[in-house]
């Protein structure tokens, strides 16, 4: 009994003990790598020589990163793909959520589940599937395009030759953006659907009594009410888009594709470390990317705050 009472948690200690597992995991897997990468960013290191082989180089790695053509190229690629995949996600997800919310009763959960499925499916499985779909000679997308070419009138608008989706620089970014869009559309739709369910129905009823049609109801009630959720979802898209890694990495075989057209900044700094053995420059780049993500997130916050709160 004495032993049990000795190990009994006092109310004062209970929160700390309960949060301890998270804190330990956070320290090991978040805080330590964060600080270690900051330390590395100021050092030159041949990793296979061990931890003692580090040499302090000051801001040399940051200078190198800022003058590196490929770092800027990767940033341009990242912004391109973040915009091309991110903007349509919201432009399609909002009307889609409105449609599902207002028009579907039976089978709604199945439809939402179907749209959400890509988000919870393994990225590797998705990338393998799309690699097969984008295949130049044997892919279903090119077969479909070839079929559409036989249509009267509009057939001439489709390419005569099979499109080398993952081999030609001009097609790589659109192909990757399409996959990212497809994957996260359902996730955003679920967010907006949840927000739609919180809008009081009497607002719409009052608007209808005042003679407002569906379009005006959407514009003056739905959209302003969704604004907090749009802010949240856009912020997630900005952060996720700038850290884009898995989809382009697997679709381009981990190399970024021809002319590095699909090489996002996250891929480049990974390759800098593990392919090109330059952990110092890779760490410096990761911090530069962090500053960019923080700045764009702050800008997003400001853009949504500028016109006043939704209420």
């Amino acid at each position: 009994m004495r032993l049990r009472s000795r190990f009994r948690l006092t109310p004062a200690w209970t929160p700390y003990v309960l949060i301890l597992p998270f804190l330990l995991l956070f320290l090991v897997f978040n805080l330590f790598p964060l600080l270690f990468s900051l330390f590395l960013a100021f050092h030159s290191w041949e990793p296979t020589s061990g931890l003692t082989a580090m040499q302090f180089v000051g801001f040399d790695n940051f200078g190198f990163a800022l003058g590196d053509e490929w770092f800027w190229k990767s940033l341009r690629n990242t912004l391109w793909m973040a915009l091309a995949s991110g903007v349509p996600q919201h432009l399609v997800a909002i009307p889609l959520a409105c449609f599902v919310h207002s028009a579907l009763r039976r089978g709604r959960d199945w439809v939402v589940g179907a749209f959400f499925l890509p988000y919870i499916t393994s990225t590797v499985a998705i990338a393998i599937l799309f690699s097969a779909l984008f295949s130049t000679d044997y892919g279903l997308i090119n077969l479909g395009l070839q079929g559409l070419r036989h249509l009267p009138l509009i057939g001439a608008a489709f390419p005569a030759e099979p499109v080398d989706w993952m081999g030609r620089p001009e097609y790589i970014k659109p192909a990757i953006s399409l996959v990212v869009f497809w994957r996260y559309l359902g996730f955003n739709m679920v967010l907006y659907l949840a927000a739609l369910q919180t809008i009081p129905g009497d607002l719409y009823e009052a608007a209808r009594l005042d003679g407002a049609g569906p379009l005006r109801q959407f514009w003056f009630i739905t959209l302003p009410s969704l604004k907090p959720m749009i802010f949240f979802a856009v912020t997630l898209s900005v952060i996720g888009g700038l850290q884009l890694f898995e989809e382009p990495f697997i679709l381009t075989g981990g190399r970024g594709g021809s002319d590095q057209a699909g090489m996002s900044t996250a891929i480049y700094l990974y390759r800098m470390a593990f392919d090109f053995n330059d952990f110092g420059a890779a760490s410096a780049m990761s911090w530069l990317l962090f500053f960019l993500v923080a700045a764009l997130t702050a800008l997003t916050n400001r853009a949504f705050r500028a016109r006043g709160p939704a209420s």
Partner: peptide, 15 residues
């Protein structure tokens, strides 16, 4: 193969 060499790089760097 690639995972193996990444793991070996990490193993050598940290011992």
């Amino acid at each position: 193969t690639s995972d193996h060499h990444t793991a070996m790089t990490t193993a050598l760097s940290t011992s």
